[in-house]
Each structure stands twice: as structure tokens, then as C-alpha cells.
């Protein structure tokens, strides 16, 4: 069993546990085991296609698994997985004044932009 460390934002799904044990021989199978035991974690850790949520970083011991083989990275039972948010500040824009979805005003190149304002 590998050890998985759970960040505070996910601990509601693990009954408050800071770390849990999960079985598996790759990062992907350990996460599958984890979400099987704690189904509430699945929406946060996985996307709709079963891949890793792009807002989650997974570290095997101290290395980001994206520097390794991602979900196929082999895992030993002495290993520790750390889950953390892939932090981003975001840059939400008010949106194009013409009502389209092409993007923010200063970047909008849609025909409606010129008349909007």
C-alpha cells in the first residue's frame, strides 16, 4: 500500500484524514483505488475521460508525475503520493460587449466589437 497525502480542501471527502493508504502499482491505479474507497474524490481528481484533472498536481515522493510517466508512472508500496492544487490566478474578463463568446474586449476580434461599447 502506498501513502497518499490529502490536502485540506479534499479532506471533507476522506472524513478529515490527512493521509490514507491506497493500493496500486502505478499512479493511475493508486488513484483508482483511492476514488473507489472515497468516491467523493473522483470529481476533483479525474476529468470526464478518466484522466487527471488539469487543476490537480500529483507528486510521487518529491517529483511532479508530469515529469515522469504521468498516470503510468510506476509506484512502489514505500512511495508517497502528494495531491496539491495546480494553482492559477485566473484572468476572468468581463466579456465582449457584443455578447459573443470570443473573449474579452481588448482581445475580441469579432465583427460585433467595433459597434459595441
Amino acid at each position: 500500500m502506498s501513502t497518499v497525502r490529502i490536502p485540506p480542501v479534499l479532506r471533507a471527502q476522506t472524513g478529515g484524514l490527512k493521509q490514507v493508504d491506497a493500493s496500486g502499482d502505478t499512479v493511475g491505479t493508486v488513484i483508482a483505488s483511492l476514488t473507489s474507497t472515497y468516491p467523493g474524490l473522483a470529481p476533483q481528481l479525474l476529468d470526464e475521460r478518466g484522466g487527471l484533472n488539469r487543476f490537480v498536481n500529483v507528486y510521487l515522493n518529491d517529483t511532479d508525475v508530469r515529469h515522469l510517466q504521468e498516470l503510468a508512472t510506476p509506484v512502489d508500496e514505500r512511495d508517497t503520493l502528494l495531491l496539491l492544487p495546480a494553482m492559477a490566478g485566473g484572468a476572468g474578463m468581463p466579456g465582449c460587449p457584443c455578447g459573443c463568446t470570443c473573449g474579452p474586449r481588448v482581445t475580441c476580434a469579432c465583427p460585433g466589437r467595433a459597434s459595441a461599447g
Binding site: V9, A12, P43, Q44, N53, G90
Partner: peptide, 10 residues
């Protein structure tokens, strides 16, 4: 960070 999906907050 969003408690529902891990996305960034603004």
C-alpha cells in the same frame, strides 16, 4: 481553490 473541482478562484 474550488472545493468542488480544484479550479482557481477569482
Amino acid at each position: 481553490v474550488c472545493a468542488a473541482c480544484f479550479g482557481p478562484l477569482e
